[in-house]
Design a protein around this nucleic acid. Structure first.
Lengths: 163, 163
DNA sequence: TCTAAATATTTTATGTTTGTAATATATCGC
DNA sequence: GCGATATATTACAAACATAAAATATTTAGA
């Protein structure tokens, strides 16, 4: 019998399910805190929204560009949604849609040269902001939490597929 | 000199700033994965949105109700936004606005009896879902991550105040 | 004390992002 | 070719952010 079960038997006010709930609330609060910082800085320093930056980051990872569906999958955002974000980036001439010859249903989205060069500047600043905000996390801690969160996401996705 | 700096000197492909960036991306991905699960379950099982649930949860923590501004602060959501969410909850008769005698600028928002009783049912299910999703986190791990995330939020808030 | 400026609280206005559902078009399997 | 599937867009409503406006309170100064 572990410490937690013993604690519950003694009527402790902190059963494991409450602790997990607290963990979730902290996870949520941290994400929101970081997101709102990023959002504000991207807006004031670079006049771009966070979702738009996220799209550009996904595109920057592959030279040939990626499809709308793949974009939606990577950003964990509905596909109907990606359309609007890409539309605005296209209007700014930061990305472009290419019709691939193989499949006329889909579009390949790519960074324009202008988009790529702007992105590299913004990404550098972005990395610096994150580095500052997460400065208390050392290498070992970071890797440990990363692997735990990966496990969490796998579990949630499996659950999702089941339902 | 620590391991990380040594690794950087040898030209390692994983400097600490990249690790922190990865940590941030995992944090974001996990939150989104959990959020989308919660959102879907709240919608299908209880016909309520996640933000509406969040508001009810904040209200449930204090019997006397709280002001719009306090609600906005706790949810980390803009105040202009809370108005709409509360409006919808008022329309459903789950919460009500009360004008306090002391300060006629503000409103106290409270759960109605109907809201309180519905919330307690939903909250129970919610806690179970979280418990399942975070099942891989034990008590010690959870507390450790919680305290690290608390530190992170403090740091981000301090940074925010400075700028 | 009394009034004007500063501050606080909320709502409204506008635009972007989000989700779900429905639709249009293209591809694939049979 | 035809039905099932895949890809993207459109339609609609909720949620979000920022900024401005409306109202109430507090503070400071004459």
């Amino acid at each position: 019998m572990n410490i937690v079960s013993k604690a519950r038997m003694r009527g402790s006010p902190r059963p494991i399910s409450k602790q997990r709930l607290r963990l979730w609330l902290r996870l949520l609060r941290s994400s929101r805190a970081i997101e709102s910082q990023l959002r504000e800085r991207l807006r004031t320093k670079f006049s771009i929204t966070l979702p738009q930056f996220d799209v550009m980051a996904a595109l920057a990872r592959s030279d040939e560009g990626i499809t709308m569906t793949e974009l939606s999958r990577q950003l964990m955002v509905s596909n109907g949604n990606v359309t609007g974000i890409v539309d605005r980036l296209v209007a700014e001439k930061l990305v472009l849609r290419q019709a691939p010859v193989s499949d006329r249903r889909s579009f390949i989205v790519r960074l324009t040269p202008k988009g790529a060069s702007q992105f590299s500047v913004i990404a550098k600043a972005h990395e610096g902001w994150i580095d500052e905000m997460l400065v208390e996390f050392g290498s070992v801690e970071a890797e440990s939490i990363i692997s735990q969160l990966d496990g969490l996401v796998r579990r949630v996705r499996a659950r999702e597929a089941r339902s």
